[in-house]
Design a protein around this nucleic acid. Structure first.
Lengths: 192, 192
DNA sequence: TATATTTCTTGCCCTATGGCAAGTCCATTT
DNA sequence: AAATGGACTTGCCATAGGGCAAGAAATATA
């Protein structure tokens, strides 16, 4: 069990060591192969996971059947479909491994027990969701105020691994442009 | 005290009547005048509120000092700046009354007590945040897949009051376009 | 009511990005 | 090695929306 990884995720000054250990122990190591679905639209999520190794993509289908990348998850991040997991409703998202992955999965039932038993863990969860909401809003603002080139450079800076492992089209839909446009942007920015 | 309003907001099948009453009683009625700031960037939010009457706008400033509307809050909605309230950090958002408003405010300290004392209220809060996150993601997808005209018509359908009370520029920045473009879109769609 | 101020509309032209299709480059299979 | 197929690039042209500025309309102020 990779304690360092999980302790970094859940670390909180007020969380006791025994609570932290209980939380860490609740995770099950799980491996995925490149191309595996972690979640498919229509399903109800029953777990979330910490991604130790690999890269994961979430996407939805638009009215034409094209897929639109909604998120990329990198190492040390939490992979979760919040509305399906917490509202117990079928998801609209697909979550798929872009590379082979090593993950630590937390079952929803187990999570619920810990969540209600450990107030600090509860606070931690709320803070995590608040942060996600903040990032989501930032992304919306960025879609409005920044050019496609700026958004691309931002992604390059924050998640280089995405540019290395994801297909052009997957990155382009995340940025809100077509793959041809991204190809041109990439060509332009390579000069700099 | 407007119990119907608050009970509709907090209603949850498993929440006992006495808990529900305690939650409702924790709100303080507050009035705002058109143009009042409920929150200014740099401040830390110390409350959230239920909007009974009126219309409220949230916005941020971009690098040029233009403001970008991030949200409109209508009657019966919860007005909250999640990341500032729950992470106790200075907000980047401004929240301002577009019309005179009647609100029911919940103080953060009081909220915390109820939140930790009433498990179902805690679940309610998490479900509410999950829903917000879902809506935020939907908005991002819409910015990518829908045209400005479609986004305008969507807003028209969901929040007519916004079109009636907010300025063109405020609506335009929410939709991610300029006020001139919105003016043209409005002209076109009026024909239909 | 007259004046000033803000908001909205519109015309002109420009730019970023889209749509399509051909071509190229790679990787995989036969 | 040849053939197939997917991914990426590029050229051509189309279009949504932007930038600017003038004018019109609405609103606030004197």
């Amino acid at each position: 069990m990779n304690r360092t990884l999980l302790k970094n995720i859940y670390g909180h000054p007020e969380l006791s060591l025994s609570d932290l250990n209980n939380i860490c122990d609740a995770h099950k190591k799980t491996m995925y192969k490149k191309g595996d679905f972690l979640l498919k639209e229509g399903q109800i999520a029953n777990e979330y996971l910490i991604l130790e190794k690999g890269l994961i993509r979430a996407f939805v289908h638009d009215f034409n059947g094209n897929d639109i990348t909604t998120n990329f998850f990198s190492e040390n991040e939490i992979v979760i479909e919040v509305s399906s997991l917490f509202q117990r409703m079928p998801t609209q998202e697909n979550v798929k491994a872009l590379t082979d992955c090593v993950c630590w999965n937390m079952d929803f039932e187990v999570f619920q027990e810990l969540y209600h038993a450990i107030p600090i863990f509860n606070e931690w969860g709320r803070a995590w969701m608040a942060q996600s909401l903040f990032e989501c809003k930032q992304r919306s603002v960025s879609m409005i105020t920044d050019s496609a080139t700026q958004r691309y450079l931002q992604l390059l800076k924050e998640k280089l691994e995405v540019i290395q492992y994801a297909h052009l089209k997957q990155i382009a839909s995340y940025l809100g442009i077509t793959d041809s446009s991204l190809s041109r942007i990439r060509k332009e920015t390579a000069k700099l």
